[in-house]
């Protein structure tokens, strides 16, 4: 009879997975653009920092939806929880920013476990409604618990200490941007490793066919709960980062609007590709900002039109269009 120990991961599979998803020139380009923004568009650093935060948030949602097939319309609940946790941490425990991020991530992870136990029992529309219901309940709690969250006025008055005791947050957002960029790089590399790991393969298998994975001996609910918790933690980190760089947390950080926006970002960029989060969040934040600046009353029309056009002409996301263009230019290019 076979040994009951689990066989070690097959190294060739993991190596192949990393090779197929290896860092490419397009990845390098993303980071070069990220660094270039700091030097050539310093007047837009606050907008760029918001973009970086939304990319992290979109990456977290991509893990849940794109890789695990977990439908969610309430992901802002983790973003908001992370934000309030980091704000409260700065207010009552320590103003040190890195541990504040960890606190935000942990608080969101705990909520991820608790809500995951409920929502992962079901799939499809029921799952969507449950995520929405949980987010709505938490929003109500945040609005009511004024002594903790500040209610509709928001949570303010906390101070964030210099990063590593050296880099003070400045009015122009230089430190905040670099800080956000570094956190994004760490989150991105973590996600990259995760989705290409044996764990990542199994959750992709679960997304394709959960029953089949069960037949292969995989504890499907436990794996999905792990993924959902990680996704929640990363959303919490994004929320914590937002709280730290803006110095204000409003109840809109838990809102359905934010949950919808981050989903639109993913749809725009491409779901289940990681790179889609970068492109989708950037396009969304920049177009929203410019449209609002040009026409403060009708800018949502521009967003709506952009989404309709994207879904109509690039249903798999803008990254797929770029991939096709690159493939056309270099026939040997492989799927990333």
């Amino acid at each position: 009879m076979a040994d009951l120990a689990i066989a070690p991961p097959r190294s060739s599979v993991i190596a192949d997975a990393f090779l197929r998803h290896r860092l490419s020139w397009s990845d390098a380009l993303i980071w070069l653009v990220g660094i270039a923004v700091y030097f050539v568009a310093s007047e837009y650093l606050q907008l760029a920092t918001q973009t970086v935060i939304m990319i992290i948030f979109a990456l977290s949602l991509d893990l849940a939806i794109g890789y695990g097939g977990i439908e969610s319309l309430g992901h802002a609940v983790f973003f908001g929880t992370g934000a309030y946790a980091a704000g409260s941490y700065a207010l009552y425990v320590s103003s040190e920013p890195i541990s504040g991020l960890v606190a935000g991530g942990l608080a969101a992870a705990v909520l991820g476990i608790l809500s995951g136990l409920l929502i992962l029992r079901v799939r499809g529309l029921t799952q969507v409604i449950l995520t929405l219901a949980i987010a709505t309940m938490l929003l109500q709690v945040a609005t009511t618990a004024k002594s903790i969250t500040g209610g509709d006025d928001g949570l303010t008055g906390y101070r964030i200490a210099p990063i590593l005791g050296q880099f003070e947050f400045d009015l122009y957002g230089h430190t905040a941007y670099i800080y956000g960029l570094v956190i994004l790089a760490v989150v991105f590399l973590f996600c990259r490793v995760l989705v290409n790991s044996p764990f990542g393969l199994t959750v992709r298998g679960i997304r394709d066919n959960p029953l089949r994975m069960r037949l292969l001996g995989v504890p499907v609910t436990a794996r999905l709960l792990t993924l959902y918790t990680i996704s929640a933690a990363l959303a919490g980190v994004a929320g914590a980062l937002s709280a730290q760089v803006t110095g204000l947390i409003g109840t809109d950080s838990l809102s359905f609007l934010l949950s919808g926006n981050v989903l639109i970002m993913l749809i725009l960029g491409g779901i289940g590709r990681l790179s889609g989060a970068f492109l989708g969040a950037t396009v969304f934040v920049v177009v929203s900002d410019r449209a609002a600046a040009i026409d403060p009353f009708n800018w949502l029309f521009v967003l709506g039109a952009m989404l309709i056009l994207a879904v109509r002409f690039t249903p798999s996301g803008l990254t797929v269009v770029i991939d096709r263009l690159v493939a056309r230019l270099s026939p040997g290019a492989r799927r990333t």
């Binding site: 120990a5 097959r10 599979v13």
Partner: peptide, 18 residues
């Protein structure tokens, strides 16, 4: 699993040693 390669399809099973 359509989104996994042949090798990845083989790797996702929770394998016992043997």
């Amino acid at each position: 699993f359509p989104s996994l390669t042949v090798e990845e399809n083989l790797a996702v099973a929770r394998a016992r040693k043997g």
